[in-house]
Design a protein around this nucleic acid. Sequence first.
DNA 1: AGCCAGGTAAGTC
DNA 2: GACTTACATGGC
Length: 287
Amino acid sequence: MESKTREITGPIDLEATLETAQTFCWRRTGDEPLEYTTVVDGEGLRVRETDAGVRFETTGLPRQWVESLLGLDDPLDEIHRKLEHDQRAAEAIDRYGGMRVVSDPFFRCLASFIISANNNVDRIYRSVQELSRRIGTEVEGYGHGFPAPDDVVEAGEERLRNIGLGYRAPYVVESARMIAEDEFDAERVQELPYEEAHEEIQRLHGVGPKVGDCVLLFSLNYTEAVPIDTWMQRAIEDHYPELVGSNYEETAENFRRRFGGYAGYAQNYLFHLVRVEEEAAKPYPEI
DNA sequence: AGCCAGGTAAGTC
DNA sequence: GACTTACATGGC
């Protein structure tokens, strides 16, 4: 079946958006032009960067869903205006202005960030891709989608351990079970104000304050959520010492007060900035 | 060999 | 509540 390509206009930096540990379910399938492929809800999606925005082809995803997945439905100009008063945020916007904040499907986002705990980005990618390849369903020409909660429950803890999730395997299975058995409803969480949603999301196994903030920011559209991992903690200590609180919640709240309702975007820019700087500062590996 | 990686759960006090 | 520790796995 031939699917026609359609276009969405609006500035977007696909590499900065899809390869900076917001989402782990896209594969880069082309370099010039940049092209990424994923499967969502049983439908294939391929996206290419253009001068004006992106061109995409899909087996059946609505256009609006594609926009949402890539974060193209957030008012980027307004967000930039609200963050530019800050020197480092302005610098990051200048360099990575087309970086969006994604709205990933709930369960794959949740599972990815449960797996992210005390882990590194490369291995998170590998684990998520392996989960898809081994348990997820393939869409011809687009690869495998991330498995649904009941597929993960059926696969079970041992299978997930064999895939390499280690001690996080039972967390992923238990959270999947809660969702599959309607003990947890993401859509209902989404109706709550941020503070309540942040408490609620932590009912899931393997979800603490940081992973919870990632899911709220990268899936449930809470642009004020500020995930503080080891990188962000260091960045805040180095560049915003006055915002350091005595615990996670306090630091996050200070950061939120400083940057406002789009604090999550500020977090994302700073996270990317410090990681790029760290990469650049790495000594040339000795032989 | 030992430390670190987008932390959390379970156990103490 | 605040503080400590174990935790799978792989790269360096």
